[in-house]
Design a protein around this nucleic acid. Structure first.
Length: 276
DNA sequence: GCCCAGGGAATCG
DNA sequence: CGATTCCATGGG
């Protein structure tokens, strides 16, 4: 893969194991929308437009500084996914999942955004999660001129449950507020979690009312890239009952989160293969 | 009208 | 510990 820095765009040429459709539409992030051939979203308060044509990926209207300091990490470009994909394809149980979407990668998102997004995700569906997150940004995030930043803990903690009613988030209102209040007040220290183990990070996140093991694992995986996190939602439980009733083989635990993403995306698109 | 959705808290045994 | 029930809302 070669990175080409142009005046106002960055090109990733001859890239492998990278597919925008699979990365941005596999249930790990909720702020990207595709129109025509352009995926558009907001990363670190910046509007981002990306397109892909085969092995060529183009980041439009961006700078070398932003790409090197933010986007490179966001798309996990320093990680060798071909090695993981190769390993998974050699496992006859997992091979179909890797062959189905070999371009999946894990995004390194903002911890607070990931936290609130996955609180919203509980007992919900992806389409509605995206809709609620969009309304959340439009009503409580900073107006960046044509688009909105994800609200800060302070911005959200100033809201009341009545204010949050516009989200139509139902019973999750109080969970969102508790998370924002505890993070803004320092009761939950999100930046400290970077240096914590998986278990310690879980303990810290579960202090929030409305955050259990599943949401915590999603935050640890997608917000902190703790690759040993293995979130089990209703779909993953269904898939695991068929693929690995005895649990995930230990040889995968170091990067179980990536395996999880292959499996999750596969069952979402092939549910009939997992019916009881 | 019914069932379900990237769950978790509260309660009960 | 595990099992059950309730929680708001919208799409299929």
């Amino acid at each position: 893969m070669k990175i080409i820095y142009d005046s106002n765009k960055i090109v990733l040429d001859n890239i492998s194991n990278f597919n925008l459709d699979e990365i941005l539409d596999c249930g790990q992030c909720f702020r990207f929308y595709k129109t025509e051939n352009i995926w558009e979203g907001v990363v670190a308060k910046q509007s981002v437009q990306i397109s892909q044509d085969g092995n060529r990926v183009v980041f439009h209207n961006t700078t070398k500084e932003f790409f090197d300091s933010v986007l490179k990490d966001y798309f996990h470009l320093n990680y060798d996914y071909s090695a993981v994909a190769k390993l998974i394809e050699a496992d006859e149980i997992l091979a179909p999942t890797a062959r189905f979407a070999p371009g999946i990668r894990l995004l390194k998102q903002d911890p607070f955004e990931t936290l609130i997004s996955f609180i919203i995700s509980q007992n919900n569906n992806i389409k509605r999660i995206k809709s609620i997150v969009k309304t959340l940004c439009e009503n409580f995030g900073e107006d960046m001129g044509g688009y909105y930043a994800f609200p800060t803990p302070k911005q959200l903690s100033n809201a009341t449950t009545q204010d949050l009613a516009v989200l139509r988030a139902g019973f999750r209102d109080k969970y969102i507020l508790d998370a924002a209040t505890k993070v803004a007040g320092g009761e939950v220290n999100l930046s400290s979690i970077y240096n914590m183990s998986h278990d310690e990070g879980r303990t810290e996140l579960i202090k929030i009312h409305g955050v259990g093991t599943k949401v915590a694992d999603c935050v640890l995986l997608y917000g902190y890239q703790k690759l040993d996190a293995f979130p089990l939602d209703v779909w993953m439980k269904r898939a695991m009952a068929v693929l690995y009733p005895e649990g995930l083989p230990s040889k995968y635990t170091n990067f179980g989160g990536i395996v999880q993403q292959y499996i999750f995306h596969y069952i979402r698109h092939n549910p009939e293969k997992f019916e009881a």
